[in-house]
Amino acid sequence: MTMSKPLLRAKGLVQSYRVKSGLLSGARELHALKGIDLTINRGEIVGLVGESGCGKSTLARILLGLEQPVSGTVEVDGVPVTQADKRARARRIQPVFQDPYGSLNPSMIIRDIIALPLKVHQICPADERMRRVARLADQVGLPARLLDAVPGELSGGQRQRVAIARALIIEPELLICDEPTSALDVSVQAQILNLLMDLRRDTGVAMLFISHDLAVVEYMTDRMFVMYLGQIVETGPTADVFSAPGHHYTMALQQSVFSPDDDAGLPTTRLKGNPPSPLDPPTGCAFHPRCEAATGTCREISPELVDLRKGGLCACHFPLGVDSGNTPLTRSDPHALRESG
């Protein structure tokens, strides 16, 4: 018996854009993705976090087939998908984007917006279509009276429900959710997150869940990827990544998350410096200018993504919490690692 194949496997994805920077320098290459490997299993919710501009949406667009990578492959069920299979891919992978305002056609009524993918993919006759729309509206908690409204008459949360219903109507196996709740109030966000959890339980749909909100990623996902400047710097089961982060950037992200239960005051350790420009990436480990544990090695050699623990990978020369010999190391003492290592 063979292990079941992942639903989606991306290998070595590289993307770059030509951008004009400044008056004198002509067009330059901006490396948005620098070799991304990622898998998503059936029924799994996989998180993707990282700061603005690190390449999350670029990765999402490539997985959706909305743009072509410079190199690298995307396989669905072990079969490479190409530009030619656009329609087949769209049947299996559907997006839910951040902006519930911009992503719906303002002049169409909700019923037609949700039904459109059925029409495009010629999945069922018109009368069956309307039955499906009604069922799905019910499933995502959209009042039936709103089916004849236009997007402008709906609240932000209701519009996001429409976007989710539209994505689900052709029963895809994977939803790519790019910041699906970032534009929503917390009480509305809670409704949408509960809805996505219910949908996964009831339909088994898998998700790539992109967010810059770590608490949301911890709540939603089974496994997660942390990106920094176009690279995966850490991945593993979400619970492990949170309980014992390996990468110094993951740690910094975690220390920047504030919960209403905290009364710890403001963080004493915080990340120094500003995010680097992707046009002018640092040498070696891209994180080294901001890292407390950086050494000469970090400035020169880019660390590989290697095993950190069972099921977890980390790209760091001096990962946190890793015993490099007989000196016991604590997470808060990365320098001890440097000396002994």
Partner: peptide
Amino acid sequence: QGLLRSVPRPGVNGLQSRLGTI
């Protein structure tokens, strides 16, 4: 109270508990 219940908390996964809604 409703607002506080709707915020995901560190250490909590959706498989264990649902968020409160308003």
